[in-house]
Amino acid sequence: MTPTLLYLVTPIVEDPAGFAPTLRAAMRDGTAAAVLLRLPLREERLLINHVKALAPIAQEAGAALVVAVEGRGGAETMAIDLGRVATRGGADGAHARDLAEARFLRERLESDRVVGVGGLKTRHDAMTAGEIGVDYVLFGEPRADGSLPALETVLERAAWWAEIFEPPCVAFAPSLDAVPALARTGAEFVALGEAAFADTAGPADALARARAMLDAADAERARRAAEDGS
């Protein structure tokens, strides 16, 4: 049984120079396996420079960095080539906010670049994402207005996906308290966003506590699997 991995979701980063120390602190112990860098809707060249400034911090800590641009839709989605932002910025991949963007990115990016997708409202949407060939699906991330889906919905959707489908699943934790339950779904990744960055002890400490929770949940799953097989 492979360990459940941590996926760190940044706030929307307007000022990469100002955010760099925060990201560096979060990556201090190399606990996160991947980072989703959320960027505002800006001119493409500026976004590329943002990625260039921050991607090495995650990558030097052993994490893959994927990039998403918030506030996109309709003509704006095609006005910025997110695939080009990712590749020219040196990111490991790109994160789509809907199926149309996921399809565009999968066609645009080579297979060595990660394409993930969130914003999946139904099981059918998730299955369509799998057919597109994305490298992971994300359930439970904040909506455009900042609200979150019900945790029960995320637990159900992650458990369903992890049991049936091959591409990895990322389950977003609204708080550290939700980490053990999400790990028990069998999701390959548990994501932390505001719960890590707003933690009073700092993001690295929050990630360390989440890692300990995941280790405990993984050990319990392994024990139960061994008992079921005996």
Score class of each variant (00 low, 15 high):
P3H: 11
Y7R: 00
V9P: 00
F19Q: 09
P21Q: 07
R28I: 00
G30N: 01
A32C: 08
A34G: 00
L36S: 03
E43V: 09
E43C: 06
E44M: 13
R45I: 07
L47D: 03
N49R: 15
N49E: 13
K52H: 12
K52P: 09
A58P: 05
A63S: 14
A63E: 04
L65Q: 03
V67R: 05
A68V: 06
V69E: 13
V69T: 09
G74T: 07
A75L: 15
E76C: 04
A86R: 12
G89T: 07
G89Y: 06
G90L: 05
G93T: 06
A94V: 12
D98Y: 04
A102F: 07
E107L: 12
R108Y: 10
E110W: 04
K121G: 05
T122H: 07
R123G: 09
M127R: 15
M127L: 13
G130Q: 08
V137C: 12
F139P: 02
E141H: 09
P142R: 14
A144Q: 15
G146D: 10
L148M: 13
P149Q: 11
E152S: 13
E152M: 05
R157V: 01
P168G: 11
F172G: 03
S175L: 09
V179C: 06
A183L: 04
E188F: 00
E188A: 10
V190A: 02
G193C: 02
A198N: 13
T200P: 03
D205K: 03
D205Q: 14
A208T: 08
R209G: 11
D215N: 12
D218P: 07
R224E: 15
A226F: 04
S230Q: 13
